[in-house]
Computed example of a mutant assay.
Amino acid sequence: MISAQTWADAQRLWDFQQMGHDPRPCSVAIGLGSHDLGVAETAADLYHQGMMPLVVFTGATSRTTQERMPRGEAEHYRERAMELGVPAEAILVEPRARNTGENIRFSRALLEEHRIPVSSILLVSKPYEERRAYATARKLWPEVEWVSTSTPMTLTAYVDSIGDARLVIDMLTGAQQRLMIYPQQGFMMEQSVPEGVTTAYERLRDAGFTSRLVANPADGNDNTTAH
């Protein structure tokens, strides 16, 4: 059973991850690979709204996705977006990235290879990683303007869509840990974390929601995505 305190702490982390950016027209979008096809669906919706002329889907596979997305996260995203009416010529696929840092670096290289001018980017991620994705992107590609967005949904709705409350809380805890430790390792920009968010994270960590934590932060983990 998930206690009321645990739900409250998870909600606090969920709310902190939401950047509150209003999507607006940008040069391109980058959809970050994961287990969640909702990223591709949101990118497709933004395309149909005229928010960007091109989307890059980026991602190889992880231990979470290797069976359900055997052709790679980016390729499965491409297929889903095309099912939703995004034309093939409006999609680029970056199939190698295995963490958020690589998502950004490899997508940048791909766009440069195609000589696509970029001044602003819609960054589409999972709802519980908006802030983490934004902090990584700003650190690695500061020359462009970033707008961070995700599928609009509540924590309860997201848990229902995944079907595993403990896994979602584990992922929230892991995302928060990275926001707190990765700036010192150069993986993302520093952000102010409210005391209440830190307290909520510590309670969840101490309650055993640890499966997505970086085991040895001092070892210089390479920003592995908390799928």
Rank of each mutant, 00 (worst) to 15 (best):
H76K: 09
V118K: 00
L92A: 00
R132D: 07
G101I: 09
M69I: 02
T136P: 00
R108S: 01
A81H: 07
A109P: 03
L84N: 05
P95S: 15
D45C: 05
S120G: 03
K126W: 01
M82R: 15
T61S: 08
E145V: 03
Q66G: 00
L111Y: 02
R71W: 04
W146G: 00
I91A: 07
T156F: 07
H114F: 14
I116Q: 13
L111M: 04
W146N: 00
A90T: 00
R96M: 12
R105C: 10
A90N: 02
T100D: 06
R131H: 13
T58W: 06
A135Y: 10
R96P: 00
E143Y: 00
P70W: 13
M69H: 10
L110C: 09
R96C: 06
R138T: 02
L140T: 07
T61H: 07
S107W: 11
P117S: 11
D160P: 00
G85L: 04
S150F: 09
L123G: 05
I162H: 04
A88F: 01
M51C: 12
A135D: 15
M52Y: 15
R98E: 11
A137E: 04
D160Y: 02
K139W: 06
I116E: 04
P70R: 12
R138I: 01
S161A: 15
Q49S: 14
I91M: 03
L111D: 04
A97N: 07
A90D: 01
E102H: 01
P152K: 10
R105I: 15
T100E: 08
L110H: 08
K126I: 11
V56Y: 03
T64Y: 13
E130Q: 15
M51K: 05
T136C: 11
T151I: 09
M51D: 10
A157C: 13
V93H: 06
P142V: 02
V55R: 07
S148V: 01
I162R: 13
L140E: 09
L123T: 06
V55M: 10
D45S: 12
V144C: 02
R63H: 14
P152G: 11
A88Y: 07
